[in-house]
Simulated scan of single mutants.
Amino acid sequence: MHSDAEGGPVLGLFVSVSGLAEAEEAVAKLCARAIGECPALAAFSILTCGAVLVPGPWWDGG
């Protein structure tokens, strides 16, 4: 969590899924659930949700 980022807090997560769209969807659902269920996060909203592919031994590059 980067609470002092320009434009508001930024949350970074690592997920292991088969594709970029699946990663974005999974993280968006997780964040929406957290905001909806945690009173301390009630003042927050999701403005954008994006993902990047991080090369590594778990990714074949194809």
Rank of each mutant, 00 (worst) to 15 (best):
M1G: 14
H2N: 12
H2V: 06
S3M: 08
D4K: 08
A5C: 03
A5S: 13
A5F: 10
A5K: 04
E6V: 06
G8V: 07
G8S: 07
G8N: 08
G8R: 06
V10F: 05
V10Y: 09
V10N: 03
V10A: 06
L11V: 15
L11P: 00
L11T: 07
G12C: 05
G12Q: 09
G12Y: 10
L13K: 07
L13H: 07
L13T: 09
F14C: 04
V15M: 08
V15P: 04
S16P: 00
S16G: 09
V17I: 12
S18F: 04
L20A: 04
A21D: 15
E22N: 04
E22L: 02
E22K: 01
A23E: 05
E24G: 02
E25C: 00
A26D: 07
V27R: 01
K29W: 01
K29F: 01
L30R: 00
L30Y: 00
C31M: 15
A32S: 14
R33S: 12
I35T: 06
G36D: 14
G36M: 02
E37H: 06
C38K: 10
C38A: 08
C38I: 10
P39M: 05
L41W: 14
L41V: 06
L41P: 07
A42D: 11
A42V: 03
A42F: 07
S45I: 04
I46Y: 02
I46N: 00
L47V: 13
T48N: 10
G50H: 13
G50S: 15
G50K: 10
A51T: 10
A51C: 14
A51E: 10
A51H: 04
A51R: 01
V52C: 13
V52N: 14
V54Q: 11
V54S: 01
P55C: 08
P55T: 14
G56I: 14
P57K: 09
W59K: 05
W59M: 05
D60K: 08
G62V: 08
G62Y: 09
G62W: 09
G62R: 15
